[in-house]
Simulated scan of single mutants.
Amino acid sequence: METEATYRGAVYPWQCDHVGHMNIMWYAGKFDEANWNLFARLGLTPSYLRQSGRGMAAVQQNITYRRELLPGDIVEIKSRLLEVHDKSIRFLHEMRNAETGEVAATCEITGVHMDRDARKAAPFTEAIRGAAMKQLASSQPATA
């Protein structure tokens, strides 16, 4: 499993709602920032996406909220791949309160690699697929 964080940040007072905790729109935003760091580790860098005419599109996203985050809390997200296919990946983000270690939320996403001109799914390059398969293998539990 990848141990380096894909996102680090803080909860600002203006990100909180009338109840006093971080509003759901900011969870989605922080998970989105983690997406781009995870993608870059696979070779889906901004340069690659611009130069190749490719993009990534989320086709399914499921967020589970476990603990509230309050103004001033430090947030850390770690991410791991769950599945790799020819044109799509499924991955999981785990958001924690970095001070307490408590899981605040998880987000499972299916993302599709797409041709931006044709507006349809496109296969990953061999290099990207290889990097994804390597990360997938490292995130699987060892079997005895």
Rank of each mutant, 00 (worst) to 15 (best):
T6K: 04
L92F: 12
S47L: 06
A58F: 03
G130L: 08
P13F: 15
F124N: 05
P123L: 09
G29N: 10
R116G: 03
W26L: 11
F31K: 00
I77Y: 03
D32N: 08
L49A: 00
G101P: 04
S47E: 14
D73V: 04
E33A: 13
I128F: 10
A40E: 04
S47K: 07
N35V: 08
Q135P: 00
S52V: 03
V84R: 02
E68R: 04
E83W: 03
Q60N: 10
A104K: 06
E102Q: 14
E126Q: 13
A10E: 15
I109G: 07
A58L: 03
H21T: 10
A98M: 03
A28W: 07
I109E: 04
F39K: 00
H85W: 10
A58R: 01
K87V: 13
H113Y: 12
L49N: 02
N35W: 05
Q60F: 01
F91W: 13
V19L: 15
R67V: 00
N23S: 15
E76Y: 06
A40K: 01
S88Q: 09
D73R: 01
G9W: 12
K120G: 09
I24F: 07
R67A: 08
A58E: 01
M1Y: 11
Q51V: 01
H18Y: 15
E108C: 07
K120V: 13
K87F: 05
E83R: 14
T125V: 05
T3A: 13
E126I: 12
E94Q: 14
I128Y: 06
L42W: 04
N37Q: 12
V19I: 12
A142M: 07
M95F: 06
A127Q: 15
A144C: 11
L69A: 04
R116E: 11
Y65V: 00
Q51N: 07
L69V: 03
P13L: 13
K120M: 11
D115Y: 11
M95C: 10
T143Y: 12
Q61I: 09
A142I: 09
H18D: 12
V59Y: 01
L69C: 05
V112P: 03
D17M: 06
V112A: 10
A121Y: 07
Y12S: 11
Q135M: 15
S47N: 03
Q135I: 02
L49Q: 02
S138C: 13
S138H: 08
L38P: 02
L69N: 03
C107R: 05
H85A: 15
N35L: 03
Y12G: 02
G111P: 02
P141Y: 05
M95I: 08
N23K: 02
E102H: 14
A34Y: 00
N35T: 14
A118V: 11
V11A: 11
A34F: 06
K120E: 09
A118I: 08
L82F: 06
H21K: 06
V75K: 02
